[in-house]
Nucleic acid binder design. Structure first.
Lengths: 247, 247
DNA sequence: CGTAAATGAATGTTTGTTCATTCATGCTGG
DNA sequence: CCAGCATGAATGAACAAACATTCATTTACG
């Protein structure tokens, strides 16, 4: 057949296509030296058109996976777009620049975390305060692989936040919101349990710092700390603070 | 004179030197458009020879400052060597590669921290346990700018540790040692105070996680948390754990 | 004067970004 | 119902800038 409708732009590229059959036969003949995975057909890779929003989400997800696996400094446009199964230029098409893509990715992770936290704290009225505290523990230390990836991303940005005002602002804004909500929850618990000598702000700061630190350990030294033990440690803190409500 | 002893390798470079006087006069004539700082003489920069150990330390210090100020991903060889006031090639001369320089820098910071911690914990016999706990708080939350820079470096590497086995091993080894020492101290306190329901390992894990988290907040959101309040939060934790020994 | 430290221009590689070109899709007039 | 056209999403080769590393050459010091 050798359809000539597909040219793909460049003269020498079309030249390659013209002798495509020959090339493939040749590469299959030397299959002993090349890994079988590499042998799967180029497959012509049918181009699919999706909406701007869909593509942006697809690229952000790929960025999260790349950062979690290769680190922030090794995350290149080539890596991200390949991970997303798309072409090199597409990230710049939808995000203007790499910097923008990275910022949007941080915003996405941050927003997701805060929405989850808000859902728990705003359920206060429906459930008991005991249940809210238990849900908080679950949310922060019981999620699956996805959550782990998100946390890896979070800390990758934290590491650069000292030098990048944009990251610093996003992270600190998120932290502030979380601190406010947890402090409100703790204040309600203190009222209900008459823990008159406790300070809700100080406890919230300490608790959230401990959660951050536990996640750091989980990421850096997963052999020395697992989620179950981390959860036990956090629970012990809450038990010390609110003995009538936790444990 | 026009000495030809200075060639500096390249033909066009020596050409530049030949007409150096003319060039300088010209640039001084257009001084209105160029900033006065750039006008200070090239100064011929007298070359100084130092021992290998001295230069290595000088380069590690410069690397720490660069990472703290610009972040790990923006730390280039040019930046580091310029910060050290040396030439571009010198880092490769003393450290073989950039990767090596970065690893050695992390090891330096890590070692320094652990030595400081060990000094406190090993003084147990001389001072009271109360004093040891107080010293621990001081050491971890009362140091000056230098300590802050070190912590910025620490977290920059933490962020990449998930993807780089070398960093991960250094960080986790350091963490493990610190955890062991703090746990021993806490165990002694528990014995002395008869806090029979406390678990030294769990308390050490929680305390160190909280310290890490507090440092993260200090770095990312210095407006929301200062060292005094962070210290108060950590002290409150120790007071809850060992009421007879702290506060 | 010999040796080892120091220099910085040159090199080859990797990176983000651009843009001419290709193509899928929905619409319009026949 | 569909041919043909307009629109903008998608592609990837090319490009320029930035990067770590090399090494011929210069210089300090014993």
């Amino acid at each position: 057949m050798n359809e000539q409708t597909f040219i793909y732009g460049l003269p020498f590229r079309s030249g390659l296509l013209e002798c495509a059959d020959t090339t493939h036969t040749a590469s299959q003949l030397v299959s002993t030296s090349s890994p079988p995975i590499a042998l799967r057909q180029p497959e012509k890779k049918r181009r699919e058109v999706r909406s701007r929003t869909e593509r942006r989400q697809q690229l952000i997800d790929a960025t999260i996976r790349c950062i979690a696996q290769h680190g922030l400094s090794a995350t290149t446009m080539q890596l991200v777009t390949r991970e997303a199964g798309l072409s090199l230029g597409i990230a710049n098409l939808h995000f203007q620049s790499k910097e923008n893509l990275l910022t949007e990715t941080l915003l996405h992770v941050t927003r997701e975390y805060n929405e989850g936290l808000l859902r728990i704290v705003s359920d206060e009225a429906l459930h008991s305060l005991e249940a809210s505290l238990e849900q908080l523990l679950d949310f922060q230390l019981s999620r699956g692989v996805t959550h782990r990836q998100k946390m890896a991303v979070w800390f990758a940005y934290y590491g650069e936040a000292g030098a990048r005002p944009v990251y610093q602002r996003i992270c600190s804004t998120s932290d502030r919101l979380a601190a406010k909500k947890v402090e409100e929850l703790f204040a309600a618990v203190i009222r209900e349990g008459n823990y008159s000598d406790r300070d809700s702000r100080q406890l919230a700061t300490g608790y959230l710092a401990m959660i951050d630190g536990l996640w750091l350990s989980l990421l850096v030294a997963p052999r020395d700390l697992n989620k179950a033990r981390a959860k036990a440690v956090a629970r012990a803190f809450l038990h010390q603070a609110f003995p009538k409500h936790v444990c």
